[in-house]
Design a protein around this nucleic acid. Structure first.
Lengths: 219, 219
DNA sequence: CTCAATATACCGGATTTCCGGTATTGCGCC
DNA sequence: GGCGCAATACCGGAAATCCGGTATATTGAG
């Protein structure tokens, strides 16, 4: 009736996410549950696809990060579906409102999860997806996220220590030049770090950065 | 022993500050006290100097805003002292750490006050100055300010309603262009408003603005 | 040892901000 | 009725940011 997997076993899941830290934490969390088992982790779409084509047992559910270097998770959806159409795909995103969600759904994803969801929420979503349920209700994850954000502000964005340094400096009126002098770095280095921070926090300019960092108590 | 004023009267004070609203509020507060009397208010150094040279009774103490259009309060110190050397001058500043303080002291000011001080603190400072005491201890005003800032965040910087609108927009990642579209204004208008906000909050770029506004719960 | 991550550094062009001006209109207040 | 203020609008040049690249050295984990 439900899925093609054998009934008495835990739901086999793969995670594809270039963020190793997040990837590891999530898999550990899933394996703590009785119902889900993270069998494999990949940090690029390419290696995951390789495994899919060579291995004989595809997972029931794949958790797929939307934003990755090289091949985007968005592009991987159709490839995965063409190899193993029975596998459900749940997109992972860091961002509150990612316009790519719609695209992902159109391409065959079953739903999406915010990375800030609790493990329980994620496991529920996996169980739902395996049963063939339609997309995860965005409002649920949204609500969970809102509550979740208030605590656990602990490095949700995986900023490196250098990036945190620079974030602190930026919060106090300093220009790139100023920060470079203060930290004894090249202008270009600071510029690079800032670009990376922008990407991690999904903002596109200074005021966006400070606003977000401030809201999330990063500064 | 103390000052040249007659003993049974309240200490006569003038206020020179281009911010009419602040000026008025402060004078009202002073007049509520039993010991200090705000006799005159001026919104420019020029008009105050004019009054000083024509009137026969200079005040014991002048509260002088550092930052004013045209003639800066800093420039006015020597002029005032040359007319009435017995008058004590207390500088007023909005900013946490104003480098002009040192200059003001060198030119003959008796001390300085942060505009965010409580009326009681200000009155104490006036009484001290009139007795010829040396500069107000910066740490006192600083401490008072810190406590004061936490409450009474009510429009400390006298932002106009339009300015508050724009501040809100800036806090959410919008560029000048974006804000202009959203509020149906010209790019130049928004630019002008932002310049004015910068001046009022004493910041010089976007991240400084957002940081300060965020700290002080303006957004 | 190898791989990946991190921190470092540089370039160039497009865009945006920053700042000091000026100017006009409308509104409220003595 | 005039004065000042708030809001609107415009200009131009200097400075800073933004972004998409590329590249190298070091370090830690497997």
């Amino acid at each position: 009736m439900h899925s093609p997997q054998n009934k008495n076993c835990r739901i086999p899941v793969w995670i594809i996410d270039d963020n190793k830290e997040f990837c590891f934490i999530l898999s550990e969390a899933l394996n703590l549950s009785g119902t889900v088992e993270c069998q494999k982790r990949f940090h690029s779409c390419k290696s995951a696809l390789q495994a899919l084509t060579t291995e004989d047992s595809p997972p029931s559910v794949i958790l797929l990060d939307i934003k990755m270097p090289k091949m985007s998770g968005l592009d991987a959806i159709t490839s995965i579906k063409s190899v193993t159409s029975a596998t459900q795909i749940i997109m992972l995103t860091s961002y509150d409102l990612d316009e790519n969600i719609r695209t992902a759904m159109n391409r065959g994803a079953s739903g999406y999860l915010l990375k800030s969801c609790t493990p329980v929420e994620i496991i529920n979503a996996i169980e739902k997806a395996q049963k063939g349920d339609s997309p995860v209700d965005p409002m649920i994850t949204k609500r969970v996220m809102d509550a979740f954000l208030l605590q656990s502000s602990e490095n949700r964005y995986f900023l490196t220590s250098r990036e945190k340094d620079i974030l602190q400096c930026l919060a106090s009126d300093l220009t790139v030049q100023d920060v470079a002098s203060k930290l004894n770095l090249s202008y270009f280095t600071v510029d690079t770090h800032i670009k990376n921070i922008y990407q991690k926090l999904n903002v596109h300019n200074r005021q966006g950065l400070v606003t977000k960092a401030s809201k999330e108590r990063l500064i």
